[in-house]
Design a protein around this nucleic acid. Structure first.
Lengths: 408, 408
DNA sequence: AGACTAATTTTAAGTCGCAAACTAAGGTCC
DNA sequence: GGACCTTAGTTTGCGACTTAAAATTAGTCT
């Protein structure tokens, strides 16, 4: 068993964390409301919030007029307490964005990137982070951490190890590379991009308020972020949620992962276009995947072949979603990723119908299927979320106010 | 957010729980070892264990001679503190077993059962529980609770609702039925049989020591218990883990759940036998499923058809397991259920190979695939585990010693 | 201005775990 | 067989924590 002591001191830390998190997610609140929401006594709330205010983590934010009685003073997390950086390492470029503590974007930077060595990417990340911080005029010392979302599985051990076949990475210790390429010692958090995007949807998008959610992501590849009991599920070594490579057609189409019959080979953008190509018996006009998929969806109103391919896609996708429903029994499914949104906005009905056809009745009745609400920045926002989550989690020690050093 | 206060009192409860659980799972331990394992100070361990001994939950169990120094006094959970009952409601009968607190069986009872109304089953359960308690000469007041494993999904709400199509149950509130059929007010715990069996493997079988495990169960039907971070994963409404009805062959064989291409239709006993029947082009000799499957496995050394059917089964099963590996990223897969054990002991190699072929490399490298170690009583043992888990969890209040009333 | 209300803060318990000092129980060594 | 280790477990004193109740603060209402 893990030696998880519980001293009276941990109590305070946990209460700090609870109150800070409540303030973060449920907006400005009075001490009184905090007391109700957290279950803590008014005295404790007063006591703990005084500390949080002292530490600069929380500030007063006006007051609510009363109708007879002392007006409530509202408290909220101090957005200027610190800043966080989110990095989205994609297959064709990287995005670097700077946020304040309320995840309001202050600056952003894009870099196109042809497939490059991990070291080259790491040094580009390091310099871009420095640039974006400088461009916003934010003092480097207020940066609480840098979150990095990558397109591949991430094994979280003492240090994160990235396996991203689509960009040719295998066993890359990105943290170490970035750390040695940058002179600042900001805490780094590396995580799979589907999971960071999922966390972004949970905090600010279609997942808000639910505790059991699967965020399905369909783009070139297919992935998912599974949220159980409010937290992203990681499994033994954090590579859980590889939905794209679950078998849905035993012995079916070959997949780029080497296996056959994977869901990704049917509903990933490449798989969809390839099936369309084969159905038409000739090449498609050139162009990037996104516009090709858009063209296919557009053609569906005129072309029977296109309509059939999309129908089949909805069928496969529904079966894939049904598998998630049966295995995870979530309360909500969020369909995201550029291809997922494109498909979803044109044929959500059919996808839902196919899901119903393949799922068991009772778990199916629990769910609602929604489209993602966040735009193309979701991966970066989600990445920036990681240092914030760390801050909320430990809420820092009463003695040494929360700062870079605390988050590890 | 859930109003989960954290008072200084909860600390004590949690530490009681930690110590009691450590003693339960890691056998007799001295106070000194407890202190190391729990991370609590020696003083606290002394203090808390004194309370536990006072309450009768823990007793001394001899001592270990020293080589220079005061000998250690061993402590263990008092097996006689209370008793628990486990009930296995199967498709063809019910098993009722009585255990002491260390899950040592004291008495057992079997009843064949043709498909019956829920009320009839409930009253049979109630009377059998009374009989088994009486036959062991155990005072009714020491029974801490009754766990019931059922063959279907269980929605846990204020009261458990059972949906078990194979025995014709739909929306059955078994707790209420059993409670009103029995005069004793023992706390009842209703749970899906695959989950109780999974918990039994975790506590006493092939799952010991691991925190992320999937226990796959293959019999007539196919199910799974997913253990994440040491606990059985339930999802939003406790019907998670319905592995048998995930689609593995899109558009494939019809399944008794109404969908098509479900894993169960390929690797469930019925599915295997039906495929064999079709492959041979004629009827099989009669008999029950278990002996029919045994006969098929036996025939594989002589019959090409039988061998092929089994090979294909291993392939489907491997793909199904690979889906679990990709989605859950466990550290261990346990293959259980009578058909799973039969298949596993004759062709584990092929199942493992098929799993490797369908799983992603990195999550695959984390796992070991093992056979279940528990016999046919596993469902009942696992059911009996439920009241024990409740006891360990709340470890009862310092003031009023743990008893029936505490577990709810 | 005085009464009344409702949100915070202060005060006075009471609980908890920990470190250090202390006791228990058994060795070793001469 | 007695002085002296060694290790296990207990007692004591203390600081930290939450809570309930009392006090204070800041408005509204008449």
């Amino acid at each position: 068993m893990a030696p998880k002591r519980t001293t009276v001191r941990d109590l305070r830390r946990q209460n700090r964390s609870t109150l800070l998190s409540t303030l973060f997610f449920d907006g400005p609140l009075s001490r009184y409301e905090l007391s109700r929401l957290s279950g803590l006594s008014a005295a404790t709330v007063s006591n703990v919030t005084a500390e949080l205010v002292d530490d600069g983590l929380v500030v007063e934010a006006g007051s609510v007029d009363s109708d007879g009685g002392r007006p409530r003073v509202l408290l909220r997390v101090n957005p200027a307490f610190g800043h966080v950086v989110g990095v989205d390492v994609g297959e064709t470029g990287i995005k670097v964005e700077l946020f304040d503590l309320s995840l309001t974007q202050l600056a952003a930077l894009d870099h196109a990137l042809s497939p490059s060595s991990p070291a080259a990417v790491a040094s580009l990340i390091a310099s871009s982070v420095r640039d974006v911080v400088a461009s916003a005029g934010v003092p480097a010392s207020t940066v609480l951490g840098v979150g990095i979302g990558v397109p591949g599985t991430v094994e979280q051990g003492t240090t994160a190890v990235v396996h991203a076949p689509t960009i040719g990475w295998d066993g890359v210790r990105l943290e170490e590379l970035v750390a040695s390429a940058s002179e600042s010692a900001w805490p780094l958090y590396v995580e799979n991009g589907a999971k960071t995007q999922g966390q972004a949807e949970m905090w600010f998008g279609a997942g808000r308020g639910a505790r059991h959610v699967v965020i399905a992501l369909i783009g070139s590849g297919v992935g998912a972020a599974v949220v159980t009991d409010g937290g992203v599920y990681r499994g033994a070594t954090s590579s859980a949620g590889e939905w794209g490579h679950t078998t849905i057609v035993y012995g079916g189409r070959p997949c780029r992962c080497g296996a056959s019959g994977c869901l990704e080979a049917y509903v990933g953008a490449e798989g969809i276009l390839d099936r369309y190509r084969k159905a038409r018996g000739r090449e498609l006009p050139g162009g990037d995947e996104q516009s090709a998929v858009a063209a296919l969806i557009d053609a569906a109103s005129r072309s029977k072949t296109a309509a059939r391919v999309l129908d089949e896609t909805a069928g496969y996708l529904g079966a894939g979603i049904a598998n998630l429903v049966n295995l995870f029994n979530p309360e909500r499914i969020v369909l995201g990723g550029w291809a997922g949104l494109a498909l979803g906005s044109h044929q959500l009905d059919r996808i839902v119908a196919a899901t119903r056809a393949h799922a068991l009745r009772h778990p199916y009745e629990q769910i609602s299927i929604e489209l993602g609400r966040l735009g193309p920045d979701a991966v970066a926002v989600g990445a920036a979320t990681l240092p914030v989550a760390a801050l909320l989690d430990r809420a820092a020690d009463p003695r040494k106010p929360a700062s870079r050093a605390d988050i590890a």
